[in-house]
Design a binder for these strands. Structure first.
Lengths: 397, 397
DNA sequence: GTGACTTACTTCACGGCGTGACATAACATG
DNA sequence: CATGTTATGTCACGCCGTGAAGTAAGTCAC
């Protein structure tokens, strides 16, 4: 049931400010005149609000456009140096911290290796915190100009009053990562599942750009998905939506590392594919082993394409998306070599109507988009006008 | 990507009016004072806006509440007689038209039998139109006071400029039902899939009341689902989302009437269950045959509960809902006798965390809620302030 | 150069909004 | 009937977006 909220005349301004800021951000350098057309706001209001934005320093002028007989348009853009955002990718083998300007240019980076069997929460939190210090030092960016830190983690992120993380592969059960980090920094924090952050990166800057009903799959050793419904990453009742990897595709089928049977992940996750080809994921390097199977045309790969296509078909029937993006390193590998077969299997296993509507494409950002996506969590807040706009030197919590 | 819209100071009023109207509708008789607390609006604004609503005739006073020493509160409520809504259920064997007042009390009803093999679009449209005339005559309600007609149909409803319906079981391929109806009436029309309308009925008045992340399943001869994300029925890119029945639960498994294999519907749809028990759906009466199987404890029924549970588990993993409502006549039958088993299967096949969050319950409105739900489509528009509020005698298109 | 023309932007008065402070209404109690 | 209490109505205020009118800043013809 829709639960609308009351609004005051001031929310109006906040909303229109956000509309303008977002348009400016995604449509690049734009004149006030054009903005008026894009947003539907009157020229007067555009002038008024952009005036505020310029006074705050969020927006700057960016040159003129020559005219053929009139006053030239002044181009406006979000000042990429107005603030900075930090994205963190917590993976199986590393913690990666990246600092971006508002144009999402990477300005500094820090990597911390993780031993695949040691993922203590304190260790990871420590790596994140020291990584943040590193990128601050490395870029020379003042701490007060950082709008926040986004963190993409594996597993389920339960967004209550304090984010709790349940990550089976890390042995994390209700780890309060947010609290751990907040003890070490006063920067605003946003924690989300890594598949969802990667999905948001593809949605904003990659193969999902411009779409509103989109699913970004993340196929690596494990399998996940980010589901975007009507432009918003769907999180469900407590943020664990999108566990596509553990939906059943073959009831009572192959055992999965989640303890269940017949999960999609057991068939199309890298570990599952190798196992089906008779290889132990522990004995070989996953990535090169899978690559070899693909190159050599091993029959298991065609079978995998079938399963993947059927898994996508289920998403198509349930969500009726306009685009499906295949991501993750294993997804890229399979997609590059077997996209036609995957699409064919998707077509065979979905209803004609929704299948016609969807385009299935490969991710454009590569498997390293998790940190970028995590940074967009901060950016999202900024565009909604919820971050301290003109943070002087403060370190808001 | 979120696409916010500019707003003017007038939208503000419209929005707050809608907030108030909706609160009044769902919270029953309420005083202005209480409304202020419920909506967050100031007492002054509540007075102001309710004044408008009363002047329009939408809202009426509904008695006083005794006080212990102060001015008594005046209770307000939406006038159930302000207008009327019509809901239509287009099923396999009948077209049912019902007229409700705004409190959703049924005021008149018309039934038109349909021969299971004759579903010409013109015939159905004719039944709907004559049914509408019947309920108008039967209730004595003036045509000008009808806010609109909602229609629930089987199959996929493609909501473009003109609703196109693709219903395999009816042999409908892109039938422009909206256009057909509009030729015969000038009442506002809202067409949607029957599973979705039933879902909205359960969400508003049944087992889903008060929830925001909800899935209502419709298990009859066929299988569908209505997916409510964040309070809104999810429709996807072109309204065909929720085709749960044709997701694959057993790749390459039993043939389904959709032409595919291994669809959930082939296992838990009434027709599929009977077929698995060796009965032909055409030779027996589906409902009594299934009922008999359930009563006699046929092993196929336990198996069906397993499949159903696994199917629900997939929804739980993907959507992380707070509630799942089992509806449809076959769903009721199975749920009444095998709910524990179904839940157990759902638990076994879903991740622990999202499973803990969800409650799986039986529908409360019975299988006949399709027409009621279709009427809520009109009600929804009314509460958003999009229907001609004080329709004098007109017949808006 | 200069004036006419064109286009982009700014200013301003206006009507509409929600709000808090205050006024009033409508009851119970003593 | 006075007093206290609570619900509701009124009003001036500050803020909003808008259209109309004004201003800025170019091109172009001559």
């Amino acid at each position: 049931m829709v639960r609308p909220e009351r609004r005051t005349v001031r929310d109006l301004r906040k909303g229109n400010r956000a509309v303008l800021l977002r348009t400016l951000y995604f449509s690049g350098p734009t004149s006030r005149h054009e903005l008026s057309g894009l947003t539907g706001l009157s020229a007067a209001s555009v002038s008024n609000v952009t005036g505020d934005l310029i006074a705050e320093g969020v927006v700057v002028e960016a040159g003129l456009v020559e005219s053929d007989g009139g006053r030239p348009r002044v181009l406006l853009r979000v000042d990429p140096e107005f603030g900075y955002v930090i994205g963190v990718d917590v993976g199986e083998t590393h913690v990666r911290v990246e600092l971006f300007d508002l144009d999402m240019n990477e300005r500094a980076k820090a990597d911390r290796p993780l031993h695949p069997s040691r993922h203590d929460a304190e260790l990871v939190a420590g790596h994140i915190l020291s990584g943040v210090e590193d990128v601050l030092a490395g870029s020379g960016v003042d701490r007060g100009r950082v709008l926040g830190v986004g963190v993409g983690v594996p597993g389920i992120v339960e967004n209550g009053p304090e984010a709790l993380i349940h990550a089976q592969t890390f042995g994390w059960d209700a780890v309060p990562l947010g609290t751990l980090l907040r003890a070490g920094t006063s920067l605003p924090l946003y924690v989300d599942n890594g598949a969802k952050t990667m999905g948001q990166a593809e949605l904003w800057f990659g193969a999902g750009r411009g779409t509103r009903h989109t699913i970004v799959t993340l196929i690596g050793s494990g399998v996940g998905a980010s589901i975007v419904t009507d432009g918003i990453t769907y999180r469900g009742a407590d943020s664990s939506a999108g566990e596509w990897g553990h939906t059943k595709i073959e009831l009572g089928g192959r055992p999965c590392r989640c303890g269940g049977r017949g999960c999609l992940e057991a068939y199309i996750g890298a570990e599952g594919v190798l196992a089906r080809a008779g290889l132990s994921a522990e004995a070989v390097d996953e990535q090169s082993a899978l690559s070899e199977l693909v190159e050599s045309g091993h029959p298991v790969i065609d079978e995998t394409a079938e399963y993947l296509g059927a898994g996508l078909a289920n998403l198509i029937n349930l969500f009726n998306p306009e685009r499906i993006v295949i991501g993750g390193w294993a997804g890229h590998l399979l997609g590059r070599h077997r996209l036609t077969r995957i699409k064919q299997a998707a077509a065979e296993n979905s209803l004609a109507h929704p299948y016609e509507r969807v385009s299935i494409v490969l991710g454009r950002l590569g498997p390293d988009a998790v940190a970028l996506g995590a940074a967009t969590l901060v950016m999202e807040e900024f565009l909604l006008g919820r971050t301290p706009a003109a943070a002087p030197q403060s370190t808001a919590g």
